[in-house]
Amino acid sequence: MEVVILPGGRQIASLVADAVENLLRNKPDAVLGLATGSSPLPVYDELARRHEQAGLDFSRACGFTLDEYVGLEPGHPESYREVIRRDFADRVNIDPDNVLGPDGSAADIPAACRAYEDRIRERGGIDLQLLGLGTDGHIGFNEPGSSLASRTRIKSLIEQTRRDNARFFRSLDEVPHHVVTQGLGTILESRHAILLATGAQKAQAVHDLVEGPLAAICPASVLQLHPHASIVLDEAAASSLKLADYYRHTYEHKPAWQGL
């Protein structure tokens, strides 16, 4: 696991966009894992800028989203399919048919979850998975207590997560209680996982993820097992890390060719 501490969101977006761009230059048909929420938005902004101004090409790429609410009608503005469309897909030249998400409106949710896992495998697996971090340590919608080997499945949201997401709805009552999410085992199979976290409200979760024990109470700690995980933070999110100076020193002296 590599921990990178940068001054702010602009630097984070540039570094992570570099990783995506390098992947696409070397593998134009790369499979991207797409996260929603506020953390990846600056990255999507930067990728859209590079597409518009420098011709960064997504035409052969494929994207898989992490999760979806259960029970929202098709086209609901806060469904993650719509969020990814607005925030990313409509702003680059990726084929809309190549942006896939779990089906939260399926009549048979378990069958839809199995089918989603099959589609990821059929595309050869996820090359680069973007991740945000919940204040309780969740990634995707794998809430505390999730199995570290879990696959795509239905999950119940804890009330803290519903409150955190209520800002996207008109009221807390509109936030669904259930979601479909890639599992922690699914996320571990990505070839490169990049987790983004900014703000002091994420500091405790970042500490638990990076320096705490591997434990289901902090689902993101499963990334300690990932063979290529990059944890990219601003100073506020890194403020509770005991080894922050070591992480800064390591990053400042890494070979320039290594990248993330």
Rank of each mutant, 00 (worst) to 15 (best):
I126P: 06
A13W: 02
A35V: 07
D87M: 09
W257A: 15
N142H: 04
Q204R: 15
V20E: 06
L47S: 08
Q53A: 14
E52V: 10
L100I: 15
P42G: 13
R167Q: 05
H249V: 05
E143F: 06
D118E: 15
A35D: 08
S39T: 15
V99F: 00
E211T: 10
D108L: 03
Q160D: 11
V232N: 03
F58N: 12
H138G: 12
L24Y: 04
V179Q: 02
E122P: 03
A237W: 01
E159V: 02
A149Q: 08
R163S: 08
I94K: 09
G125T: 12
R49Y: 13
F168A: 14
G185K: 08
L188H: 05
A166D: 01
P74L: 05
G37Q: 07
G125W: 07
N165C: 08
P144Y: 00
S150N: 03
L209G: 09
G8Y: 00
E122Y: 01
S240A: 14
G140F: 00
N22P: 01
K27M: 09
A54K: 15
Q204H: 13
D108P: 02
S38F: 06
E68K: 06
Q11F: 03
D173M: 07
Q258K: 14
Q258R: 15
A200H: 14
K155E: 10
G212P: 04
I5V: 15
E82N: 10
A35T: 12
L260Y: 07
I120Q: 11
T152F: 01
G137N: 03
H178P: 01
P213I: 06
K155C: 09
P255F: 07
F168G: 12
P96C: 12
R248D: 00
T36K: 08
Y44E: 01
D90L: 09
A89V: 06
G212Q: 03
Y251D: 15
A197C: 04
L6M: 03
S150R: 05
Y246R: 14
L6I: 03
E2G: 03
L100Q: 13
V70C: 12
R10S: 14
V20Q: 04
L172G: 02
I94W: 04
V3R: 10
E174W: 02
A30P: 02
F58A: 14
S105L: 08
A107R: 08
D45G: 11
P219V: 11
A19N: 07
V31D: 07
